[in-house]
Design a protein around this nucleic acid. Structure first.
Length: 586
RNA sequence: GCGCUUGUAGCUCAGCCGGAUAGAGCAUCGGCCUUCUAAGCCGAGGGUCGCAGGUUCGAGUCCUGCCAAGCGCGCCA
C-alpha cells in the first residue's frame, strides 16, 4: 500500500508538470510514511511541503492540487490536508484484511523481497585471530553479522559470508611459541612462562594433545630454550622483545618443519573450536579465507606491484610506504618494514584486492569499533587499486562492556581470564544471547550485565516474544482438546468480523512486516526488526488478554484463528532472521 | 594535541530521508488468574532530548562552538 501511494503521488506530480502547475524539471522525492497517530489516517506524505518552495505555492494549496491530480484508487477512501500541509491518507479497512490471506499463503516466504535485485554482497564478519577461543565481544559481531547477512538475503541480495582467518603473523607465532613452552612444561622442563605469551588453559590442552600424538619430538632442555634471551618485563626487560626472542628461539631449535607442525597444531585446534562454537551459535560461512594463502601465493607481491605501477608506493628510511594520505588517510602507511617483513596492512591490501577481483557489487566488513581508524587506509587502498571505495561499507560493532552485577568484568585474551562466547551460550542459551545482542544498535556501547542475561525469568526480552508464539500454539492445542472444528476458508470469508481495536492494530502491524525487513536490511539494522517483534508480541498479548479466541460463533472464531495464525507466522519468520527459535510451548 | 563515535525518563536503550502531542523495557506505585499458559494484561507517576547559537514552514534528527565520555592516532595484529 505504501509503494502504491508513492506511485499515485508520483503520477499526480507528473500530471501537474504536464499541466504546467509545476516546473517540468522539478525533481520530486516522494515520501510516504506510516501515520503515527490514527487521527492522521493510515499514511501521510509531506510532499506538498517539500515542493512548496520550488513550485512557489503555499503548501496547503499545492496539497489540494496534488490530491485533485491523484489517479483513482478504490482502497483509498479519504484524503485530508492537515497541519502545515501534510496529505493524510485513509485506507479502506476492508483492504487491510487481505494481509491475513497473503501471510497464510506465503508462509515462510512472507516478508521476502527483491529490493536487493540480486546484487552480490560479501559480508565479512568475526574474523577473530585464531589465538584463542571467541569471547563475548566476538559474539556480538557474530550475532550482528549473521543477522545482517540473513536480512540482506531476505531482501533479495546474493550474500557471501566470509571469515578472514589471520593465520599468519606475529600473534600466531606467539601462540605457537606458547604451545611449545607448555609442551616442554608437560615434559617436565621448568621454565618461566613469558608475560606476553598466551596463558590460557586451552594452550596447555593443545600442548597435551601434541604430546599424545608425537611424544618427545619437540623436546629441548629448558636451559637451551632460555639461554641468552633478553629479560622479560617482570625481570626488568621488555616483554615484546622477550617474546620475539622466544619465538625466534623456537624456530631455531625446532627447525622449519617441526615448528610448522607445532604452529599448525595450535592453529587447527583453535580454528576447529571457533568453527564449532560459531556453528552452535547459528553462524555459518560460505568461506574461511586464509591470510597465509595470500602470503604463500604471490597475492601480496601482486597487490604491491599494482600499487607501485600506479605510483602509490615509495621508499623511505629503508621501508616501503603506501601514500595513503593522498587518498584521504591521515598519514602514509608502511607496507614493507625495514627488516623486509610485510605488515599486516600489506596482507589486507591483497585481501581487498582479492575481494574486488571476485567481482562483488558490495563489500561489507564488520569490525570492532576500536578499528575505526583503519577504515580510511583500506578505502585508500581500494581506490589506489582502481576499485570504487564506495563499494566498501564498514559496519562497526562496539564491544559490549561486561558487568557482573555492579562489577565490571575485565577482558583480555592473554590473561586467560575472560568470558568466552561458549560460556555465555552455556549460561543463557543461544536464543537469549542472540536476541540480547540484536536488541541494541550495533555501533553503540552496550552494557551487558551477565546477571541480567543469565536470569531465566521474564527479564530476558526474548522470552516475551517467544511466549507470544508459544501462546498462539497453545490456543490451537486447546482447539483440538476441546474438539472444536477449524475452517480456514470460513474464517477468511469473515475477516470483516475482526472489528475490535486490538484486531485492526494487529492487522496494521502485520502489513508493516515486509517494510520492516526491507529497511532493517538496507540500513543494516537488525535492532529495528527486534523492536518490531517486541511490538507485535505486545499487541498479541494485549489482544489475548482482552478477547477470547475460542468463541462459540464459528465465523468469528475462525476469523480470529486465521489472524493469530498470521501473527504466529510473522513471529516465526522474524525470529528465524535472527536465528532465535520459536518454541511451540514454554 | 588531532581524528572518529556517543550524550534522550532513576537505569538500559529506540526514535526510519528533518515532520504533527519524544517512545519502550526495567525499576517505583495501584489494579487483573473459577475462563485459550500471569514468562501475561490494564492504569499512574517520571523529560530543559549535554549546553549555547545557527539553517527553515518545521530540529532529538542537519551545521558551528563549548562541555563530558569512549575509541583511535606503531616499521603491532
Amino acid at each position: 500500500m505504501k509503494t502504491r501511494l508513492e506511485y499515485l503521488l508520483r503520477s499526480a506530480v507528473d500530471t501537474l508538470k504536464a499541466e504546467g502547475e509545476l516546473p517540468a524539471d522539478l525533481e520530486a522525492a516522494v515520501m510516504v510514511e506510516r501515520a503515527r497517530d490514527t487521527r492522521h489516517g493510515d499514511f501521510a506524505s509531506n510532499l506538498a511541503m517539500t515542493l512548496a518552495k520550488a513550485a512557489r505555492a503555499k503548501p496547503r494549496q499545492l496539497a489540494e492540487k496534488i490530491i485533485a491530480a491523484l489517479p483513482a484508487e478504490p482502497a483509498l477512501v479519504k484524503t485530508e490536508i492537515a497541519g502545515p500541509g501534510f496529505i493524510n491518507f485513509f485506507i479502506d479497512p476492508q483492504a487491510q484484511f487481505h494481509i491475513v490471506q497473503q501471510i497464510i499463503d506465503e508462509g515462510r516466504e512472507f516478508g521476502l523481497s527483491e529490493v536487493g535485485a540480486g546484487q552480490s554482497v560479501l559480508v565479512e564478519y568475526v574474523s577473530a585471530n585464531p589465538t584463542g577461543p571467541l569471547h563475548v565481544g566476538h559474539g556480538r559481531g557474530a550475532a550482528y553479522g549473521s543477522a545482517v547477512a540473513n536480512l540482506l538475503t531476505a531482501a533479495g541480495f546474493k550474500v557471501h559470508r566470509e571469515y578472514y582467518v589471520n593465520d599468519a603473523g606475529r600473534q600466531m607465532d606467539i601462540l605457537a611459541a606458547s604451545v611449545w613452552l607448555r609442551y616442554l612444561e608437560e615434559c617436565g622442563e621448568v621454565l618461566t612462562f613469558p608475560s606476553n605469551g598466551y596463558r590460557g588453559e586451552y594452550v596447555r590442552d593443545i600442548a597435551k594433545d601434541l604430546l599424545k600424538q608425537a611424544c618427545s619430538d619437540y623436546l629441548h632442555p629448558a636451559a637451551a630454550v632460555v639461554d641468552g634471551l633478553p629479560q622479560d618485563e617482570p625481570q626488568g626487560g621488555d616483554k615484546e622483545s622477550h617474546i620475539d626472542a622466544v619465538v625466534a628461539r623456537a624456530k631455531e631449535l625446532l627447525g622449519p618443519e617441526a615448528y610448522r607442525r607445532v604452529f599448525d597444531a595450535g592453529l587447527n585446534s583453535i580454528l576447529d573450536d571457533i568453527r564449532q562454537d560459531l556453528g552452535e551459535f547459528g553462524v555459518e560461512y560460505e568461506e574461511w579465507f586464509s591470510e597465509r594463502s595470500l602470503s604463500e601465493s604471490d597475492a601480496v607481491e601482486r597487490a604491491l606491484d599494482t600499487l607501485r605501477a600506479s605510483g602509490h608506493l615509495y621508499e623511505k628510511d629503508g621501508a616501503i610506504w603506501f601514500a595513503s594520505s593522498q587518498l584521504g588517510d591521515e598519514k602514509d602507511r608502511v607496507v614493507v618494514r625495514e627488516n623486509g617483513q610485510m605488515t599486516y596492512f600489506a596482507s589486507d591490501i591483497a585481501y581487498h584486492m582479492d575481494k574486488l577481483e571476485r567481482g562483488f557489487d558490495q563489500l561489507i566488513n564488520i569490525w570492532g569499533a576500536d578499528h575505526h581508524g583503519y577504515i580510511p587506509r583500506v578505502k585508500a587502498a581500494i581506490q589506489a587499486l582502481g576499485g570504487d571505495p564506495a563499494k566498501l561499507d564498514v559496519l562497526l560493532v562496539q564491544f559490549a562492556v561486561l558487568y557482573r552485577g555492579d562489577e565490571k568484568v575485565q577482558m583480555s585474551t592473554r590473561s586467560g581470564e575472560f568470558v568466552t562466547l561458549r560460556q555465555l551460550r552455556n549460561e543463557v542459551g543461544k536464543d537469549a544471547a542472540r536476541f540480547f545482542y540484536a536488541l541494541r544498535k550495533s555501533d553503540q556501547h552496550m552494557d551487558f550485565d551477565l546477571r541480567l542475561a543469565t536470569s531465566k525469568t521474564n527479564e530476558n526480552p526474548v522470552y516475551y516474544v517467544q511466549y507470544a508464539h508459544a501462546r498462539i500454539c497453545s490456543v490451537f492445542r486447546q482447539l483440538d482438546e476441546k474438539g472444536l472444528p477449524r475452517d480456514v476458508v470460513l474464517g477468511m470469508n469473515h475477516l470483516q468480523r475482526l472489528s475490535e481495536a486490538h484486531e485492526s492494530t494487529l492487522l496494521t502491524s502485520l502489513s508493516r512486516y515486509p517494510e520492516v525487513v526491507q529497511s532493517s536490511a538496507m540500513q543494516h539494522s537488525p535492532h529495528h526488526l527486534v523492536h518490531y517483534l517486541r511490538e507485535l508480541a505486545a499487541e498479541l498479548h494485549a489482544y489475548y488478554n482482552a478477547h477470547q479466541f475460542l468463541v462459540e460463533n464459528a465465523e468469528l472464531r475462525d476469523a480470529r484463528l486465521n489472524l493469530i495464525a498470521a501473527v504466529r507466522q510473522v513471529l516465526l519468520n522474524g525470529l528465524r532472521l535472527l536465528d532465535v527459535s520459536a518454541p511451540e510451548s514454554m
